[in-house]
């Protein structure tokens, strides 16, 4: 079976000044199976966002290769959602979520499909609203829809809920879990929130400051729901990962 996303021996150097080269990513190997939800966790400076940008084809690795379903990645290979919602302020919600279709050849998302999605995420009445009229959670949902409607099978999400307050975040978790089964996407997800990572993921990849990685499978049954954060299993997972981060 072809893997959805493969990073093989990937290294990336940053060159703030010409003389100082610093490897911020060194020899990273990550593989995602189709339909898997994998979270990347690590302290600041471990290169999480850089890994996503490399996978999205926005940066070129200095060593190694990245493949999406067997083909070398390039811009347009995957759906990419940055931390900020980055909705275009002059476009309506509908126009925003259909943005990607303007750059695609062949079959495109129709307005009808886009409206159906808006209905499903509770933004039906905001189809013609401008982003500034939406709340933080609604904006994030719109940005998420925009990513889904790229119609890419692999989605890269860079702390999509990082800027939301705790309550809204919980709502977003319930919402994401509720559509997760039928979404049928492969997701690589960055977060700082351990509970979020455990709740949503099939697997967690821990990035250490010495640029090694460590994989932790999350063996919790699906479907999951956001109340599960209080179960003993989850708490144990959290303790275990916290310890690993502290030791790492």
């Amino acid at each position: 079976m072809t893997m959805a996303l493969v990073m093989k021996n990937v290294s990336y150097l940053v060159r703030p000044e010409k003389r100082h080269k610093k490897k911020i990513i060194s020899n990273v190997n990550i593989t995602l199976k189709k339909g898997e939800f994998v979270s990347l966790i690590g302290k600041s400076g471990t290169g999480k966002s850089t890994i996503l940008k490399l996978c999205a084809g926005l940066l070129k690795p200095d060593e190694g290769e990245i493949r999406v379903y067997g083909k070398a990645t390039e811009p347009g290979s995957v759906g990419y959602m940055p931390q900020k919602d980055l909705l275009l302020p002059w476009r309506t919600v509908l126009e925003n979520i259909m943005l990607a279709s303007e750059f695609q050849k062949g079959a495109k998302v129709t307005k009808h499909e886009a409206r159906n999605w808006l209905k499903r995420v509770g933004l039906k009445d905001y189809e013609n609203a401008l982003p500034r009229e939406l709340s933080g959670g609604m904006r994030q949902r719109a940005a998420f829809l925009r990513t889904i409607l790229t119609e890419k099978e692999v989605l890269l999400l860079d702390e999509p809920f990082g800027a939301l307050d705790a309550l809204t975040k919980k709502e977003m978790h319930s919402w994401l879990l509720s559509i997760w089964e039928e979404l049928n996407k492969t997701i690589l997800f960055i977060t700082h929130d351990l509970e979020e990572a455990i709740l949503l993921s099939d697997r967690i990849i821990l990035l250490h400051l010495d640029q090694t990685t460590e994989e932790i499978p999350v063996d919790l049954p699906r479907p999951r729901h956001s109340e599960m954060v209080h179960t003993m299993d989850m708490v144990n997972y959290k303790k275990m990962i916290e310890k690993k981060i502290a030791d790492g």
Binding site: K53, A56, L58, G76, Y80, L86, E102, F103, Q104
Partner: peptide
């Protein structure tokens, strides 16, 4: 203009001219 918008459009496969028309100019 904010380079992050540029990156977002680039990740969708937009070329430089499309990025200019859809984001930079407005």
């Amino acid at each position: 203009s904010d380079p992050e918008y540029d990156e977002l459009l680039q990740s969708m496969g937009a070329n430089k001219w499309q990025r200019f028309m859809k984001v930079k100019l407005p």
